[in-house]
Measured scan of single mutants.
Amino acid sequence: MAAGGDHGSPDSYRSPLASRYASPEMCFVFSDRYKFRTWRQLWLWLAEAEQTLGLPITDEQIQEMKSNLENIDFKMAAEEEKRLRHDVMAHVHTFGHCCPKAAGIIHLGATSCYVGDNTDLIILRNALDLLLPKLARVISRLADFAKERASLPTLGFTHFQPAQLTTVGKRCCLWIQDLCMDLQNLKRVRDDLRFRGVKGTTGTQASFLQLFEGDDHKVEQLDKMVTEKAGFKRAFIITGQTYTRKVDIEVLSVLASLGASVHKICTDIRLLANLKEMEEPFEKQQIGSSAMPYKRNPMRSERCCSLARHLMTLVMDPLQTASVQWFERTLDDSANRRICLAEAFLTADTILNTLQNISEGLVVYPKVIERRIRQELPFMATENIIMAMVKAGGSRQDCHEKIRVLSQQAASVVKQEGGDNDLIERIQVDAYFSPIHSQLDHLLDPSSFTGRASQQVQRFLEEEVYPLLKPYESVMKVKAELCL
């Protein structure tokens, strides 16, 4: 049975990233139509530049190519590739079939990587351009969430054990800070992308030097003109047959890092959902379990974690691919890159769409948070109580021993009897502590235990987050809708 299948058929496997999760716009960027249309555009740009620099290419040939950029006979191309065992030459023939007058000058002087690699770089750039505003929107939604809850005390956790208090907004800023680093890295790697350009079979530009009869300047002009037509500021000066596969490492490393950030955020949300302090959106008709109707599973956060793990592992592909590119190139890269580049971007696209949807509907339960604080705060307040007693004339050592005994009794009630923490009640009825009984409410005010959390939130948002989001103001209103 021949390899390949009808990918629109229910009898043929289709990647869930495309069929179930990723956005239509990201799927289109990695589609065959987008790819092969870009090949034709690159052939047109090459012909236009070659004509401008004096090669015998007519206006009629150029116009014929322009008129057929979208006229792609995919069936013919597939048949040609089956016959020739070469995808680029299959599309040269297919393009030439609908451009008979231009057929002889299509791909003039070029090698397969002229269309293959340059198209990949265009796709990487455009895919990054799709991700950047999506990530900015996630940051914006979380920034709104953090600002609104900047002063809401909550129990902090280290080692997932109760620690000092923080605020809900401050905790959210930990998430935002990681995503801001990801946004900066995505922008950097996007701006650092260079075009492969017009380089020939081993990167020496020998074929173009021959076409222009040894004119170095025209060869350099050709490279520059096509690079500018493709919208790049610069091209690699040095290439082998391909652009260095280190570029793929750079791009997928940034995406993998984004995956790590999203995994951490969504894990926190899942843990908070278990504590009943916070939940992701839950639709009115949504079913959490087929057997347990009360369940409210954090399905979206779980999906993000599941896909983020996949995204983090994909960076190993370009690392290994770059390491086995012998001399000017081997074909070890080809099949692998067809999979890992598309999957990385479709996965990143999915987790950003999902995280935006989550961040637009996060639900906080202040009463649950308050109750958990009441359970733990008495123990945390013991040092403040000791200091207040010393100020009232008591002995630190005597007070410490009193607190120690009462704390152990209260802990026994919590752990052995399943009761509430009654340390404060014990202190309130103990005559030894009568000098500070009137101060206990103040000493137990949760806001006095959150330090500068709310001020940190305000400063972080104003100095770091809002300036970073400013270039994306025009796209901030787009909502994230999930079908599944």
Rank of each mutant, 00 (worst) to 15 (best):
I139V: 13
W326I: 10
V324D: 10
K224V: 11
E463P: 03
L275M: 13
Q456T: 06
N384R: 07
V92N: 08
R33S: 08
H107I: 03
V251S: 09
G96S: 10
L132Q: 14
R245C: 00
L69A: 09
F433V: 05
E279K: 03
H442M: 13
S12W: 10
H86I: 00
G231I: 02
A291V: 02
L258C: 10
E81M: 00
K415C: 08
E302V: 00
D420F: 05
C399F: 05
E25C: 09
V364H: 05
A110W: 01
K402D: 07
D441I: 08
D216H: 11
E383P: 03
D216C: 09
F36Q: 15
R426D: 10
D182W: 03
C180M: 14
Q286R: 02
L406W: 07
D268K: 01
I358P: 02
L84F: 07
R338L: 01
T38L: 08
Q409P: 03
K276W: 04
A335F: 06
F232H: 02
V115R: 02
P378T: 07
D332F: 04
M387N: 12
K170P: 02
F327W: 04
D420T: 06
T52P: 07
A342G: 13
G156Q: 04
S438W: 08
L69E: 08
E80W: 07
I238W: 01
L186K: 04
A18H: 12
L440V: 10
M299Q: 14
H437C: 12
V189R: 10
A146W: 01
M299K: 02
R270I: 03
K415G: 05
R459Q: 12
S447A: 14
S207P: 08
T204V: 10
I339Y: 04
M387Y: 07
M292E: 04
D248E: 10
A392C: 12
R245I: 00
L346V: 15
Y432R: 07
T330A: 13
E302D: 02
A335T: 11
T202R: 01
L193F: 14
S434Q: 12
I122G: 02
H107R: 00
D248K: 04
G54D: 13
Q408W: 07
R459A: 13
K264R: 14
A322F: 11
Y13F: 10
D332P: 03
M26L: 08
G214T: 10
D332L: 03
L53C: 15
W39N: 07
N274E: 09
K134S: 12
G361L: 09
E80S: 14
A260E: 05
L46W: 00
L132I: 14
V315L: 13
E48C: 06
Q320V: 07
L69V: 11
I369D: 04
N421M: 09
